[in-house]
């Protein structure tokens, strides 16, 4: 649901950029972590609705869903979403759709452990970022 808030943040930050640079925007490349379980179609729909009220009316949104490579800071093990799937399922079960990772993916270390050594201390790349703008 908060895909709308995120789309709004993308529109307003790209709009601000385009006004500062005095450039029209054709395409926005947004990168999101797969961990966030954000719905790409909803993001795009929201973006397309919100942009109509902005100065980047012609911009198109392209979303790249990044797959995680987690790196354990304790034992060095590198693992992916697949390796912790069994740890993530209970979160979906307990919290439902609006679960903490959906809203704040950085919270992953509170819920998952390194499958090899059991440490919560692993590196995450959880940010939502605009990686490029085509003008």
């Amino acid at each position: 649901m908060h895909e709308w808030a995120i789309a709004m943040s993308v529109v307003s930050s790209v709009e601000k950029w385009s006004m500062e640079k005095n450039l029209g925007v054709k395409k926005v490349f947004l990168s999101i972590p797969s961990l966030s379980m954000l719905e790409v179609e909803v993001l795009i729909e929201a973006f397309n609705t919100i942009k109509k009220e902005s100065k980047i009316r012609d911009a198109e949104l392209e979303v790249r869903v990044r797959d995680q490579n987690f790196k354990c800071r304790s034992c060095g093990n590198v693992f992916t979403m697949k390796d912790i799937r069994d740890q993530l399922d209970p979160i979906l079960r307990d919290y439902g759709e609006e679960n903490p990772l959906h809203i704040v993916p950085s919270l992953i270390t509170a819920f998952a452990k390194c499958p090899k050594c059991g440490s919560h201390d692993f590196d995450v790349d959880s940010s939502i970022r605009v990686e490029g703008i085509e003008v």
């Binding site: 903490p100 704040v104 950085s106 919270l107 270390t109 509170a110 201390d121 692993f122 590196d123 959880s126």
Partner: peptide, 14 residues
């Protein structure tokens, strides 16, 4: 209010 009574542990940079 997002995590309820689950503990939170985070690497500093997160």
């Amino acid at each position: 209010g997002l995590v309820g009574d689950h503990y939170i542990v985070l690497p500093g940079k997160e």
